[in-house]
Design a binder for these strands. Structure first.
Lengths: 221, 221
DNA sequence: ATGTCAATAAATATCGATATTTTGGTGAGG
DNA sequence: CCTCACCAAAATATCGATATTTATTGACAT
């Protein structure tokens, strides 16, 4: 089996392919939270062998998107309001820290990359949702990318992904009435570029918390 | 293959057995940092099949104790001074947070468990190192166990384990001249039980930072 | 000498089959 | 009518073998 990637040059392992697909399915809700993930069933869905599926599920465990039950297989991580609020709170704490460190270590490279990823995100706004999602994450991670602490950044990226999932769960409401999201991004960017840590952090956190309120509203338990 | 555990009653999966063994070997340095981990070689060492070994390595990846190189197998996570200091800093931030939340939510159950685990740790001081290590971790995790944020606790536990590794790396120096470690633990316990968050956190952090200084001294790069 | 390339050796990734374990249901006994 | 032990059926975990991929070596041309 030879898989060709975008550039038409390289190959991917079956495990990685399965990993990417399953991750996407869990994030978007194609595999509902809490659902039992049977190897056979997934093997069919992705048409690949059982070993790659098992390994992909193991990898997703690291991301806290899948839970392994010791002799009883895997299931998609459960989702509920308490978990959502935990993620939001942790995200605010850790991203605040990472952003402040990034600004403290600010240099031209970081600043330029910020401007660039923000530009890409603006252009992607017209494109389909998946493209914009990707650009949005890239911008937000670029904000934190100068913290000097790879682990901190990894934690933030993990929490970011877990949050995406809840955005898809409260699906319809990716429109936020009475809110100018692009303006919020501009403000964060502007404060970061000006190296105003307090303002950047305040804007970033309120950006997250606002979205959190909208989502909380459309969430049952 | 039927493995009987301590109690002589239950069984474990081969994967879990391999996971526990490999984790131990990496933490204690039996498998040196940065070393290539060949499946065949480990299969022999643990006398089990290749599948459990692969899966155990995948699981260890979640713990950041093993790195997976895409089509090129696994290796023990590298260790260096920068990484050590990153862990120490993150630990201080996250444990400070978790401890304060635990104290804010303090109740009788938590308090009693604290006293109990501290007692066990004191008794374990005479026993062999591995026993004490276990009790020491249990005590420290009990301090954080009331934070109300399972993920935060998970991050702390992960960082705790990563730190153990550096203690073994600077092996000989598990004696800390001019330091009364048991007294430090008493102070942390006392402050926590009295629900004095500021004092508890200060004592906890200085406990970690002191050890950090000793370890930093015996570390080359 | 030195760098490139092909052939070989080693290691990883994947498959298909088998052995264990869990689950859910059924009937005997209380 | 409920409880518990037991028996399929389903699912997971594990093995052994094979197909791919990466690393190494040595010959050959420059």
């Amino acid at each position: 089996m030879n898989m060709i990637d975008d550039t038409g040059v390289k190959e991917t392992s079956a495990t990685r392919t399965a990993y990417v697909s399953l991750r996407e399915m869990i994030l978007t809700g194609a595999l509902p939270a809490g659902q039992k993930l049977k190897i056979e069933q997934l093997r069919g869905l992705l048409n690949t062998g059982a070993s790659p599926v098992r390994e992909a599920l193991s990898l997703l465990t690291s991301d806290m998107l899948v839970e392994r039950i010791d002799q009883r297989g895997f299931r998609a991580a459960p989702a509920n309001k308490a978990n959502f609020e935990e993620i939001l709170a942790l995200r605010c704490t850790l991203e605040d820290l990472a952003l402040r460190q990034s600004i403290a270590n600010a240099d031209a490279d970081w600043e330029e990359r910020l401007v660039l990823t923000h530009h890409h995100m603006k252009k992607a706004a017209q494109q389909e949702a998946a493209i914009f999602e990707e650009a949005h994450k890239t911008f937000h991670m670029a904000l934190l990318a100068n913290s000097g602490s790879p682990m901190l950044e990894k934690f933030c990226a993990q929490l970011y992904d877990l949050n995406i999932r809840y955005r898809y769960l409260a699906a319809k409401s990716s429109i936020y009435p009475g809110r100018d999201v692009p303006a919020e991004h501009e403000e964060i960017l502007d404060a970061a570029v000006k190296r105003d840590a307090d303002r950047a952090s305040a804007k970033l956190l309120s950006h997250y918390r606002l979205t959190g309120e909208y989502l909380s509203r459309d969430m049952q338990n």
